[in-house]
Design a protein around this nucleic acid. Sequence first.
DNA 1: AAAAAACATTGAACTAGTTCAAGAAATCGT
DNA 2: ACGATTTCTTGAACTAGTTCAATGTTTTTT
Lengths: 192, 192
Amino acid sequence: MYKEINKYVSKCISISEQELAYFNSLLKYKKVKKKVILLKAGDVCDFEIYIIKGCIRVFYIDENGIEVDLFFAVEDWWVSDLASFSQRTPAKLFIQTLEESELLFIDFKSKEKLFAKIPSFEKLFRLMLQRTNETLINRLISNISKPAEERYKEFIKKYPTISQRVPQHLIAAYLGISAEFLSKIRKRLSKK
Amino acid sequence: MYKEINKYVSKCISISEQELAYFNSLLKYKKVKKKVILLKAGDVCDFEIYIIKGCIRVFYIDENGIEVDLFFAVEDWWVSDLASFSQRTPAKLFIQTLEESELLFIDFKSKEKLFAKIPSFEKLFRLMLQRTNETLINRLISNISKPAEERYKEFIKKYPTISQRVPQHLIAAYLGISAEFLSKIRKRLSKK
DNA sequence: AAAAAACATTGAACTAGTTCAAGAAATCGT
DNA sequence: ACGATTTCTTGAACTAGTTCAATGTTTTTT
């Protein structure tokens, strides 16, 4: 039994010990080194990952080879390329560990079994989806309407731990600015 | 019975005539004039709207009073402020008709009844959510990594009808650029 | 059909953010 | 503890996009 994830699940839906045990039996535990690519674009993503410990980035590489960071995830978060996972199509995204991480994997078939056996998990995943949605909308809004300095301040305010664990040039790629410019922003802020 | 929405639903999930009839009984039809505000930030959004006919925008107004257009929707699309709707919290978004529109409304309680009575609708709404998610991710990627001209070209390619029905300055607000700059881009493109 | 309102274009001056190149600082693997 | 790789900073020259103000065009209202 994996206590972290069980706590996570219990917070969102009401569930019995037995059901939790079944859920846990579907998970695969893996300890993964730093900088390991867990998914590369083109492959079908056959997992959703829950992070017990560690840090992961999800990113996209555009036609010019430029990396855009979409998400950083740490303890108690989930990551996946959901479009690929749920439609069994080739992934557009890359997923990579940034630190040595302890992860729980659930694959497509297991998730289907889970939904069939314990329908309340549908709700859990729908809630997760809804939260992702909101986050994306907020991010889109600030990307469209706010200057880089504000976006950076928002970021460190919202994700204080992440901003210390993730290298700066990746944060720049997340904010949609060059690493150099982020450095200049930081200088400007430190002077105040 | 509303044939358009029934066709939409039947495409996504398998459903009986009887069930469709029940679903239709929960919908409220409204014909709405041009430029009517259907939701304003601060109110709780108690509807999801299916568009039979017409055109709608969803937008955000930031601290400086600047409008950011998040979605344009036309026939056979749904709109709502989902965060507000599903958590019964004050909306952050505005929803407004751009043309005279024929709409179907479903409210929170009716949606709950619907899910209770016909669980396959859960799947339908989850699929819709997933699609929204993908769209948002793609949009974020292009907003972060592509220059305005490309974003505009992508937009007219992806939404050829919308780009002709929606005023240009709103498209600019959607792309995250000034109306003037969009005008300059269009001039540039027309010369080629 | 005229007047008003909303929408689109243009140019000039400006600013936020980029690119390139080089060097400094930190961290990693053995 | 070392060199090697990765990360961070800085400045100079540049470019994409903004703002403002004025003018032109289309659509709506009466």
